[in-house]
Write a protein that binds this DNA or RNA. Structure first.
Lengths: 183, 183
DNA sequence: ACCTTTGTACAATATAAAGTTTACAAACTT
DNA sequence: AAGTTTGTAAACTTTATATTGTACAAAGGT
């Protein structure tokens, strides 16, 4: 009876997929995104929306949404194959790279949102400062806020540099993928 | 009329708090946590649950929950002050440190969850492997999964080292807080 | 030109997360 | 020791997110 062994193996694979999904939730993406990535990963070759839908027991619509989200996050890519009409999707197979993609995608978004805000707030504060009707105490408070804003901008610049540090792979020079024996 | 200026200033402060909250959502914490942090931050000195409740227009119970969550995340601390019976809470004022605390809290949790899983899965696979009833193909698949598991463990070790890299402050040697002019 | 397949918008529903109210226990006052 | 005040737990409500079904437009095949 090999069916039982097969079932167990299948179960182990599912557990693994679930673990990948779980890991990805730490980045704030939904578990379904993680499961789709895990499923394609385990499949070892690109899959179509229909295959994913079938395999995960979810609607094709949902698969479409999720795959698009993954393309945005740079953890999946569309693959062309002669003779196949359906779109095929493949995923990043390197855990480290996936980590970096998710980490940086998140912060890229945050940085973009932040930029407008800072400029706007800065302008408002300067306008306020130039108003003649401000007393000593207000003046003081405005200055404090201007300083805060400056620090905030510096902080975001740091995050920006941090992203580069990851994306360029420099991080691996200081936190290597594999520990050497002489550790 | 200084009231108008005061209102504008208040509004600017609120915007700033909202920005802090927004930034923190990138780490997956609820916006209320961010607002509480921002509020205490702007207040420039520790606050009580009642003050927070009053200031944010939310229930004291909710404040209690949120503050407890922040204590868990290491971004707030209880402060004692003679003569004051209510608990006072203060927040980390260093953006960088807050970043690190949130980043590492998240991953510490993930790492802990992962450890059990890996051991269990590994054992299951070895058991399966030792079963005599496995054919060539299964054997192959089991081996593949064992390799995957090993890689997964290595990946998590890397994250673990990455956390140390942040917590120890070593990160700032390579991605400094302030860019030097000679950049 | 017509029919089929494929992928995505949109509205409706189901599920999960956040927040509030009520109730109660522990610490402090008097 | 009785009465307040403060902090937390549990049940409930509201709000946000995930998922599905239907409808439709674009591309492919015949």
């Amino acid at each position: 009876m090999e069916g039982k062994t097969f079932d167990k193996l299948r179960k182990a694979e599912d557990q693994f997929v679930e673990k990948i999904a779980d890991n990805m939730q730490t980045f704030g993406v939904s578990s379904t995104v993680g499961r789709v990535l895990g499923t394609i990963y385990m499949n070892r070759e690109p899959m179509t929306l229909d295959e994913l839908s079938e395999n995960l027991g979810m609607s094709k619509t949902r698969m479409s949404q999720v795959v698009r989200e993954m393309l945005d996050l740079n953890i999946a890519e569309k693959v062309f194959e002669r003779g196949v009409r359906k779109d095929l999707y493949n995923v990043e197979r390197d855990y480290y790279q996936t980590f970096i993609s998710l980490f940086t995608s998140n912060w890229h978004k945050a940085i973009n949102k932040s930029k407008m805000f800072e400029q706007k707030l800065h302008r408002e504060l300067v306008d306020l400062q130039e108003d003649e009707m401000v007393n000593e105490e207000m003046e003081q408070k405005i200055n404090e806020l201007l300083i805060e804003t400056k620090e905030w901008v510096e902080y975001y610049h740091w995050i920006s540099r941090l992203i580069d540090f990851f994306e360029s792979g420099e991080i691996f020079e200081h936190v290597p993928k594999h520990t050497t024996k002489k550790d």
